[in-house]
Design a protein around this nucleic acid. Structure first.
Lengths: 348, 348
DNA sequence: CTGAAAGCGCTTACAG
DNA sequence: CTGAAAGCGCTTACAG
């Protein structure tokens, strides 16, 4: 395949053409003050020698690596990977590489990732920390690198925008959906107390229940977790404690699916005997057997807006973009019964 | 927070202590020939000045970036993200950063990613290309960078190890599972013809059927795709063409789930009237409603072995590690009926 | 329009 | 045990 050596650098190209390294550099970077003839020669030589510019050297001198870090709890979580895919898409269109780091909600790994990002001179950092201890906050506050929080809110003392779903409002909408359809005894399966997202949804549930004057005895709460398995056991516990519930709001879809599984195993008809509403709109929710009514997190939009905010900050570090609080969207399927209507489901 | 300036480099540390840059560097890198006193002073100064070594500069001079690229079709595909999580885990333990690129099976993006990896001086490349055209093969053959193929086989003309599941053998095992249980009329829902994985599984189906003397009229094949939706329509088509089938082998779990959905909508009992076996062992397969018998891809093991092979090649570029062909594992659940046993299911 | 030179922030022989 | 110097592969004022 011609004269290509194992590895070529800009010096080789210059030597090959008998011109200076600076001219080659300017031609390569499309500077306007290079003669068209020279530019063509350079392009041909690059082709011929199979030269590929060294981005590391370029990054060192320009102090720009075209890399942004994306810290996520777990890449194999469906919401995370959807978010990641959207962020990546927006950035790769602009020539940026995005580097993920799965932290598994471990503060030590979160710190490791941020330190790494500093060392490696990333141009920006997108963070989804679960708990941000004081040490990390102070680390971030000294950072001269744009930061945006994704699916989180900006911690106290930091000055960075966030992009998140309005979990509180969405949870409230979910509960109102049930109440509007005549439900009063509504249970809640919570995510871990440490989860910000989870506590917002819980707040939405509680506030909405009391706003409608539904007394504590109408409620029933149990801490589930995040997984299908946890949803199953949570539903069992919830039902045992509050057998009179007509509806359950599960703080995420996986919990809701677990709840549905348990109910089905107990031969309880959904929504005939009990209604279920979830949160996330995972693929699971659309399955024929679940037909789960749920609040959709618009992951594509979130990733895109997050990337946009970051791109804007990288262009102009002076002014912060405003944070985005995105509305979740109600996706109605078959898991909620309208108690006010003539029942169309046969109880058995 | 003390005397930390916006950004510190090794020169600042040296100046602060009144010693040379080279001594600081040696202390930082734990060279043995640095006096303990000096080393302590350096460590304290680093702490005090909040110095973080610039990995870009280090990478430039050492020609090692501690970065490996992982090219995958789509990070939001469950198998891909599981594989990615496992690869990432193995590498991050060793101080490597892994950079994903979702190519969406687009050769242009695949090329883009490889070019990018060259520019950015990655230390290694893990590839899962769907189609590798001649141009890409020649690009890779000139590469002085370790490459391992994951969930693929090494293309003709390239000299790199691969780590993959033995799809052919596993598909054969799936079909034998059905045959052993008395099934003879076995249908197949295929993945796209362009998929290597898919054609291996198809080959396994076909060869096993004929090995058992099950004539073409016992078979029924239809090209599904990859998704639940495609599984649904494929099952409809398959049933229409071959109503006498007693079992169906779906080339992946998503197709199998779609098939199950369609069968259930048609009020056909699984496994009472028709058995279904899948491939992948996704979370979907364990759902209460599906209880899908399937072949598990050991993603954790694959990712780990792939990382190990890469690490070995980076250590000693001379000798190639041998490729790994990993056995899939049969996961028996409730979607396959044993026709030889006394039927425990009531037909309705 | 082009070239020589300095420099990005490190590491690494080489001398002492 | 320590320091001065060269150099990794680029870019970018500066001069001409």
């Amino acid at each position: 395949m011609g004269v290509k050596s194992i590895v070529t650098n800009i010096k080789d190209v210059a030597k090959y053409l008998g011109i200076s390294v600076s001219t080659v550099s300017r031609a390569l970077n499309h500077y306007p003050d290079v003669s068209p003839i020279t530019k063509n020669q350079v392009m041909d030589a690059v082709e011929h020698l199979n030269y590929r510019p060294n981005a590391v050297a370029k990054g060192l001198i320009q102090k720009k690596t075209f890399t942004v870090g994306l810290m996520i709890p777990d890449i194999s979580d469906p919401i995370c990977s959807l978010l990641a895919a959207s962020v990546e898409k927006s950035f790769s269109d602009q020539g940026y590489q995005v580097v993920y780091g799965s932290t598994h909600r471990d503060p030590a790994k979160e710190k490791q990732f941020i330190l790494n990002a500093i060392s490696r001179q990333f141009d920006g950092l997108i963070l989804t920390p679960d708990v941000l201890d004081e040490e990390l906050v102070s680390l971030l506050s000294d950072l001269r690198m744009p930061v945006v929080f994704l699916q989180r809110r900006t911690p106290e003392g930091l000055n960075a925008p966030f992009v998140d779903v309005d979990h509180y409002h969405a949870a409230s909408a979910a509960v109102r959906n049930l109440i509007t359809r005549g439900h009063q005894r509504i249970g809640f399966i919570a995510m871990p107390a440490s989860s910000f997202t989870g506590s917002e949804r819980k707040r939405g549930y509680l506030d909405t229940m009391s706003a409608y004057g539904l007394m504590p005895e109408m409620m029933g709460m149990v801490e589930g977790g995040r997984t299908i398995e946890q949803g199953r056991t949570a539903m069992a516990e919830l039902y045992q404690r509050c057998p009179g519930l007509t509806a359950v709001f599960a703080a995420n879809d996986l919990l809701a699916v677990g709840a549905l599984e348990w109910l089905h195993q107990q031969h309880m008809n959904v929504p005939g005997q009990i209604s279920v509403i979830g949160f996330d709109n995972l693929e699971h929710a659309a399955l024929h057997w679940t037909q789960l009514t749920t609040m959709e997190q618009p992951t594509e939009e979130m990733g895109r807006k997050c990337a946009l905010a970051m791109l804007r900050m990288m262009r102009d570090p002076k002014q912060l973009p405003v944070s985005e609080l995105i509305e979740a969207k109600l996706i109605e399927r078959g898991s909620v019964l309208n108690l006010n209507a003539i029942p169309v489901y046969t109880m058995n």
